[in-house]
Computed example of a mutant assay.
Amino acid sequence: MSNGSAGRAARSLVRPDGETSGTAPLRTFLYTVDGTSIDSVYDPGPVVYDTSPSPADHPVFVVAHGFTGDVDRPHVRRVVRVLARYGAVVTFSFRGHGASGGRSTVGDREVLDLAAAVGWARSLGHTRVATVGFSMGGSVVLRHAALHRDAEGTDAVVSVSAPARWYYRGTAPMRRLHWLVTRPAGRLVGRYGFRTRIHHRDWDPVPLSPVEAVPRIAPTPLLVVHGDQDGYFPVDHPRMLAEAAAGHAELWLEPGMGHAEHAAADPLLTRIAEWTAARLRESG
């Protein structure tokens, strides 16, 4: 949930580059229910606030980045530029990433970060909210949709390049990632090489896995997107997610696509935005 300071920062119209303008994106820190500060940016997209229609008439995309990303990374800003053609966009840095507080729990308590961002989007007047997540963020949007059915919930879900199950080590990139997360030397590399502060404690308890979360998402519209050349998670992961949805999810296996934001070309992001906007219109 966001607190009063978020509203005050929003009214100051602070752009990501630090300048101010009446039409600029809004930048603020949100606070999660466990007290973690989350660096967040709201891009109005095509919405014009001093005329009709109101923000309630426009969709908002809440983007959940992948592990070691943050709100200022060029690949995250590129996603924003494409989605902003179809609605407003909220981006944020997960805990332990960029300027946000706390330490990364690699997909566990990050659900609280996403809930704060969705709550902020609704507090700005949007009644149609979609979550779009990549890699770690893809697993977070699935778990968030399963666990939040309140004002911090979502009306459509897009999960891109997400794992289906925890502790997967079947590819070289995932073995390297496990070293980064579980070893003291790896966490130092994460902090100084990737601007990502990783929590040293193991999960206790182990959180609900993405494949366990998927059946709980219905009837919220769900799109699972995955590249057939993903070097982190092979195509059995998206197929497991789609199967767990029991016909509720739509699955796009993208030929030649690699992993997450870097591999999601603008035409694919455009298709995702169009699919999401259509589902939100149907639900609204």
Rank of each mutant, 00 (worst) to 15 (best):
116 A>H: 02
151 A>E: 14
278 A>M: 03
220 T>V: 15
37 S>Q: 14
127 T>F: 02
228 D>L: 06
124 L>V: 10
66 G>C: 11
213 A>P: 06
284 G>W: 10
140 V>P: 00
269 L>W: 04
256 G>K: 04
12 S>A: 14
208 L>E: 08
199 H>W: 07
34 D>S: 09
161 S>L: 02
146 A>M: 09
16 P>A: 04
271 R>K: 11
270 T>L: 08
56 A>N: 06
252 W>C: 05
59 P>R: 06
187 R>Q: 11
42 Y>W: 12
221 P>I: 00
152 E>Q: 13
13 L>M: 05
92 F>V: 04
229 Q>F: 01
196 T>H: 05
211 V>K: 01
135 S>V: 05
130 A>I: 06
279 R>Q: 12
245 A>C: 05
179 W>Y: 11
167 Y>M: 06
274 E>F: 00
229 Q>T: 15
241 L>Q: 01
112 L>R: 12
209 S>L: 05
255 P>A: 04
262 H>L: 15
239 R>K: 14
78 R>L: 13
247 G>H: 10
150 D>Y: 03
47 V>W: 15
178 H>S: 11
120 W>V: 01
54 S>L: 14
14 V>F: 01
158 V>E: 00
236 D>S: 14
66 G>H: 02
176 R>Q: 10
111 V>Q: 12
230 D>S: 10
162 A>K: 03
151 A>V: 11
104 S>N: 03
146 A>L: 06
267 P>C: 01
206 V>D: 14
74 P>G: 05
151 A>D: 12
256 G>L: 03
230 D>H: 08
39 D>V: 03
242 A>Q: 14
54 S>M: 12
158 V>D: 00
229 Q>R: 14
81 R>K: 12
146 A>H: 07
11 R>C: 11
240 M>S: 15
174 M>P: 07
149 R>M: 01
255 P>G: 04
45 G>C: 12
229 Q>V: 10
138 G>K: 08
184 P>W: 08
57 D>H: 09
142 L>D: 09
263 A>G: 05
175 R>W: 05
221 P>F: 00
67 F>I: 09
65 H>P: 03
13 L>N: 05
76 V>E: 06
156 A>S: 11
200 H>T: 06
106 V>A: 14
121 A>K: 04
184 P>Q: 07
100 S>V: 07
197 R>L: 04
66 G>E: 11
184 P>Y: 04
154 T>S: 07
227 G>P: 08
162 A>S: 14
105 T>F: 10
255 P>C: 08
